[in-house]
Design a protein around this nucleic acid. Structure first.
Lengths: 150, 150
DNA sequence: TATTGTTATACTCTATAACTATA
DNA sequence: TATAGTTATAGAGTATAACAATA
C-alpha cells in the first residue's frame, strides 16, 4: 500500500479530541505571546509578575508563584531579572523575615504600562478567528474548566 | 505595606486574558493526559501516531510529523519505540526509497484499541466541569482558532 | 539542489532535592 | 518541624544543524 498524505487528518482529530485541540491551540498562542512579549522586552512571566504586583500590592515570591503557577525556583530568576532592571524591589517582610515583600517600582509600572499597551493588539490578532461574543464564550468555558482542574 | 495573599487573583486574570486561561487549562489537561496515557503504557505521541496510521493507512514519518506536529527528529524516537514494541513496521516506500511507509501491525491495533478504551473516561473526568453542549462549543471555538493560527 | 530519515546538540519549561535563615 | 528563598540539577518538549541516502 502506498504512503498517503494524511492531510487534513488533524482537523478530524481535533473535532473528536478537545484535549488535543486545546493543547495545540495553546502551543500556538503561547508562541505568539512570546513573540509579542519579546518586542516589549519583558518576558511573559516578568509581565505577569509585574501585573499582579501592580494589582494586588507587594507579595512574597511564594504567593506570586502560587497564583501565577510559577515554581519558586523559577521565580527567583524572574525576581532577579526584574530587580536588576529596576522594575521591582525586594524588601524584607517585617512580619516574616524569611520572606520578601516584592514591590513594583515606578519604573516597573512604566514598563508594565508599555507592555500592556501591546496586549489588545496581540489578543485581536491571535483571536482574530473569533468574534467578540465567541471570545467571551471561550473565556467563560475555560474559566469553568480552570475551576475544577486547578 | 504588608504582604497580601493575592488569592483568587488568577481568576480575574483569566477573565481578562483568554490566552493565559488557554495556556493554563492546556497545561492542566496535558498533565492529566500524560497520567492517563501512562496507565495504558502508551505515551501520548505514540498513541496519536498509532491512531493516525490506523485511520489513514501507512505514512512516512514526515507526514506523520507534519500532521501531528511532531518534529521529525522526535518522530524517529517514537517510531523506534513503536517498532521495538512490535506495534509498527518500517517498510521502505517503493515509490520513494528515502522514505519509510510506517505501518501498524495487528499488535499495534490491539494496543491502540486498548488505549482508546480509556479515552472517554479521561475526557469525561477532565472536562467534567462542562456539559456536553459546552464541550462541543469549546471544540468548535478551538477549531476556528486552529484554522487561522496553525 | 532538495528531501527523508538520522544523530547530536541546545534551549526552554518544569520539577526535585538539598541547603540557609528564619519561624 | 515547617516554611521562604536559593542553588544545582535533571527531565520533558522542542528546535536546529549537519550528515547519508535518495530524489
Amino acid at each position: 500500500m502506498p504512503t498517503r498524505t494524511g492531510a487534513a487528518y488533524f482537523g478530524r482529530l481535533a473535532a473528536e479530541r478537545p484535549d488535543i485541540a486545546l493543547c495545540r491551540a495553546s502551543a500556538d498562542v503561547a508562541r505568539a505571546a512570546e513573540a509579542a512579549a519579546g518586542k516589549s522586552g519583558l518576558g511573559v512571566g516578568h509581565h505577569l509578575v509585574l501585573k499582579m504586583l501592580a494589582a494586588v500590592g507587594p507579595c512574597s515570591q511564594r504567593v506570586l508563584g502560587e497564583e501565577l503557577r510559577i515554581d519558586r525556583s523559577v521565580m527567583v530568576g524572574i525576581a532577579d531579572e526584574l530587580e536588576r532592571s529596576g522594575y521591582v524591589r525586594r524588601e524584607r517582610d517585617p512580619g516574616d523575615r524569611r520572606a520578601y515583600a516584592v514591590t513594583v517600582t515606578e519604573a516597573g509600572r512604566r514598563a508594565l504600562a508599555e507592555a500592556e499597551r501591546a496586549v489588545p493588539e496581540f489578543l485581536d490578532s491571535t483571536f482574530a478567528a473569533l468574534t467578540a461574543a465567541e471570545r467571551d464564550q471561550l473565556t467563560s468555558l475555560l474559566g469553568k474548566l480552570l475551576v475544577t482542574v486547578s
